[in-house]
Design a protein around this nucleic acid. Structure first.
Lengths: 338, 338
DNA sequence: GACTCGCTCTGCAACGATGCAGACATCGTG
DNA sequence: CACGATGTCTGCATCGTTGCAGAGCGAGTC
């Protein structure tokens, strides 16, 4: 049985379609007697408005889309929660999609037939897309980007200050008296901008402290996953002169490193201190608990949604806004011990 | 500037709207010369089909919606990944939403204006909704339920055998020689069906092994979060005769318990063994690594999507299907040590 | 009593796409 | 040369809703 339409209700109630629509939406004044008749018919037929039709007519869907590389990376899951909440505050439903960190699927977002046309706006955390590709997309859906990646002034964009965050993480380790500090997570190629910014911050901290920069202590990882963190950390400890601290470019790498180090028999933080970035809840319950830089996810979400809503409702495109969210150092056992 | 429509392209190419549509969709044969003209116009105007309009005409959107209580609960995030993948295999895009474990928001899903009308089907992991509420919803969108909750035969439904899973977890602990086994996560009220099934499995195992059932060892928790696991575990160890093993109803509780126990100075598994359910990746990297029951998330996702697609494309409603996904015991350090 | 006013209510057109039936031109066949 | 068959292309109606303009009607005013 198909869903009842306005026409069905109108026939049953003996009124015009338009009047039913008015009753449903409360747009125009309707006399009590008619209203009652219509409402009876509405419930009898169990009418539900067809939102697709409404959207077509109104040219908007009231939905935003958040696209992240991987939902099961806790940082993105926690961010998604915040974005969904921020969207609701502005009257938008936020639906989440993931690209599986697959460049092909990221590019699908830009194609002609992308499902994104269904949404009023897009919040995208790109992984491999270049600014140029994004600019040339056929898609006119308003976009706000998350993360440092590919920002070139042509899009609204929200991120933390990655250089500062990395510098502060490294300085925290230096402040604890560590002198051979490794970095895990560099991505020295086109799509690794965020990682490169963190490397820059790391080097700034070393420089300011007058510590030498040793390329052997910087380990690239293709992704920011636990297992790669474990591998990198144990490899570092196998060096002739191993590090006494490891700065990981995100918490998953750091948590993997923790586990790898403990398995290999190293004590954290006594032998090696470890710090990450992301402030995911998992780090609080790890053993030892993980020191980290906590980005203000609430702020990121709010800023992203606000920029996007401005783009959508602002009519003429306002200039792309670049917003910075705050971050704070959260020292825990993995650097300062118990 | 608004998006180009078929009409715009048709005007520019000097052909009928219908022909442009044919070129775009490849439906009917079009001569090479016309096709070329149309394609030029298409790219010049950067035409993108309006999916809302297409959906309205075709009566379907090609999108499924997955609704979970909390995306930042890793089990749901990992499940979401699997569901998204399974959906793609069947030609559907899956969008994810969360209710924040808020009963009000769960009920919003059922209201007249629910955005769900935009989707061809719904995969729902309900938390507080009753079967009756779901049955009485105005919404005719096909639904498949995840988890044991509220299944009463009126909906298609996918879950693991929670009783067996809990029994096997408990039996694993018993097999290691533990005799005072606690359970963390009971929810002895209407919306706690899943938890209650796990309690049943726990009691079955005790009974079969001839171990006494001690109500003091069963700790309810309102949610399945790390912090509550930590609290419950430390409370248990403060008992006059503390347990020598703890079965947690999910991995987050277990990971919280691990941390709580270690902070309180207990050795895991020497003093207390700990096991969870969910098989989330986090448990593999915890210290000690977490023993767990791993539900076959791939299977859950596949079964759910297949049932849903059957409902959607099957025309006349097929009988609701009840599907069971497999689970396996994965012993790790938190029960068997290193 | 004619007129305006204001309140209800209605019909038509439109959003942008596709399904369908048929128009038209071209071709092959007897 | 007439005919039907084939291959391209088009116009109209339609999906379910809302915007707009105006019809109809009773009440109020002079």
């Amino acid at each position: 049985m198909r869903e009842a339409t306005l026409r069905d209700v109108a026939t049953r109630a003996g009124v015009s379609i338009r009047t039913v629509s008015n009753v449903v939406n409360g747009y125009a004044p309707v006399s009590d007697s008619l209203r009652a008749k219509v409402e009876t018919a509405l419930t009898e037929l169990d009418y539900r408005p067809n939102l697709i039709a409404r959207n077509l007519k109104q040219g908007r869907s009231g939905m935003l889309c958040l696209v992240v590389p991987e939902l099961d990376v806790p940082y993105f899951a926690e961010l998604a929660r915040a974005v969904i909440a921020a969207g609701r505050k502005h009257g938008y439903a936020v639906m989440v999609d993931q690209t599986d960190a697959d460049p092909v699927r990221e590019r699908e977002l830009l194609t002609r037939n992308s499902r994104l046309t269904l949404f009023d706006g897009l919040i995208l955390s790109p992984l491999t897309l270049s600014a140029q590709e994004l600019r040339e997309r056929g898609n006119k859906t308003p976009v706000v980007l998350l993360g440092e990646h590919i920002f070139d002034g042509s899009f609204s964009h929200v991120a933390i200050d990655n250089v500062a965050a990395a510098r502060e993480a490294t300085e925290h380790l230096i402040g604890l008296g560590r002198t051979r500090i490794a970095a895990v997570g560099d991505q020295p190629y086109r799509t690794g901008e965020t990682a490169q910014l963190r490397t820059a911050g790391y080097r700034q901290a070393l420089e300011r402290a007058g510590l030498p920069y040793d390329p052997a202590l910087v380990r690239p990882t293709e992704r920011f996953h636990r297992r790669l963190g474990a591998t990198a950390a144990t490899a570092l400890m196998a060096l002739d002169s191993p590090p006494d601290a490891i700065f990981c470019y995100n918490d998953l790498l750091a948590l993997g490193a923790l586990r790898g180090l403990l398995t290999a028999g190293f004590r954290v933080p006594d032998d090696v201190a470890v710090i990450g970035i992301d402030g995911i809840e998992e780090g609080e319950f790890a053993t030892p608990s993980l020191s980290t830089i906590v980005p203000d996810k609430q702020a990121i979400a709010t800023l992203a949604v606000e920029s996007l809503v401005a783009l959508i409702e602002g009519g003429a495109a306002p200039a792309p806004a670049e917003a910075r969210a705050a971050h704070t150092l959260l020292p825990r056992e993995s650097t300062v011990g118990r």
